[in-house]
Amino acid sequence: MERGGSVQLQGRVALVTGGGSGIGKAAAQSLADEGMRVCVVDIDGAAASAVAASIDGIGLQCDVSDHGQVDGVFATCVEEFGSMDLALLNAGITIRWSGDIGELDVTDYRKSVGVNLDGVVFGAAAAVRTLRARPERTEGAILATASLAGIMPWHPDPVYTLGKHGVVGFMRAIAPNLAPEMIAVHTICPGITETAALGNRRALLERIGVPVMEPDAIAKAVLLAATAPLDQTGGCWVAQHDKAPWRMEFAEVPTPDSLLNVPVAPPAAPE
């Protein structure tokens, strides 16, 4: 796989949410293969510990919709490994396809948005604070797993689409703010992948001609984004069946409103 840049992963520390299975598990294994020490985080603590044991990492239980728990696992990662250089905010869920919005279940809605969107916001905030606290300001990265449903409407489940569109927009918005601090921000947008979120739908999808990817294919996109040059920050990396991951370019909107759309200056370094 051709890498995006010269960012080194060897000897550094990664934290992966939703790392107990699926894309998170595959990404944690790939990052470990690159020489990273990995903190595997999952709401299923036993699954996180099992994956961590296989890669000589640490496993932690966390509900990413709870900002206190998110802050706690980042703190534990630093306590155990001395640093945190890359966060992959991968945890995600599907509740049930909510195509008929008139039948919206508010409890399902809150749970979906809590994990798929709040979990990324809370994770990014914790990651930025953790990266800023490192004694040496070397390159850092924050990656988030969205979906093709983050860049196209997914009519069977508009609530899932809402969360994933939110992730893409949020990550694109914070990227220029963090670039001066050498913190890269990227989003991964996979197509249909064999994960717990897919449930038992694989056979149905393949019968109608929709290919299902294996999680290892998405892990390749994670490595590509993680090693991309800093000037590519804000990238949205699309992973599709039988295609190499590629960086999507968004059309610019010609408008004088852009005069207001300037990056937020980073905080002044302590003296």
Rank of each mutant, 00 (worst) to 15 (best):
G150D: 08
K164A: 08
D44A: 08
N116G: 09
V115W: 09
T193H: 00
A203G: 15
A52N: 10
G18M: 10
M1H: 15
A27S: 15
G19A: 14
A50K: 12
A47R: 13
R3S: 10
I58G: 00
A173R: 01
A14Q: 04
R202Y: 10
A196L: 13
V70L: 04
W97S: 12
L31E: 05
I208M: 13
H186Q: 14
A268I: 06
D44K: 08
L9R: 05
S258I: 07
E139P: 11
I58F: 05
D85L: 03
Q61I: 11
G82V: 11
A265Q: 10
E2I: 15
A217I: 04
L143Q: 07
A203W: 06
I95Q: 15
D242R: 08
V51F: 06
D242V: 00
F74C: 05
G235C: 02
H165D: 12
A141T: 12
A251G: 04
A219Q: 04
P267N: 04
L117S: 05
K220C: 11
T145S: 08
T145A: 04
G140A: 09
A127H: 06
T187K: 00
I183W: 01
R247S: 01
V41D: 00
G150Q: 10
T76W: 06
L198V: 11
P215A: 05
G45Y: 11
P256V: 06
P180C: 06
G99I: 11
V38S: 07
L131Q: 06
M248R: 09
N116W: 07
S258D: 12
L86Q: 03
R132F: 04
G11V: 12
D33L: 09
A127I: 12
P229M: 04
N177K: 04
S147T: 11
G150W: 09
G99Q: 14
A244T: 08
C189W: 03
G24R: 03
M248F: 02
A32W: 07
P158I: 10
R3N: 11
D63F: 07
A75W: 02
A47K: 13
E34Y: 10
L224E: 03
D100P: 05
A91T: 12
V41H: 01
T193V: 08
T94C: 09
I93A: 01
A126R: 10
A50C: 03
G57S: 11
M248Y: 02
L143Y: 07
V64G: 12
V38W: 04
L148R: 08
M84N: 02
D231H: 10
C189P: 01
V210W: 01
V264D: 01
E206I: 13
V222S: 01
E103G: 12
R37F: 02
K164P: 05
T17E: 07
E271D: 12
A244W: 01
D231F: 04
L162W: 08
Q232P: 00
M152T: 14
V159M: 07
A14N: 04
R12L: 06
D56E: 14
A87L: 13
V115L: 13
M84V: 13
A144N: 12
A125M: 15
G99W: 09
R201P: 00
V113G: 05
C39F: 03
S30C: 07
H186Y: 10
L131S: 03
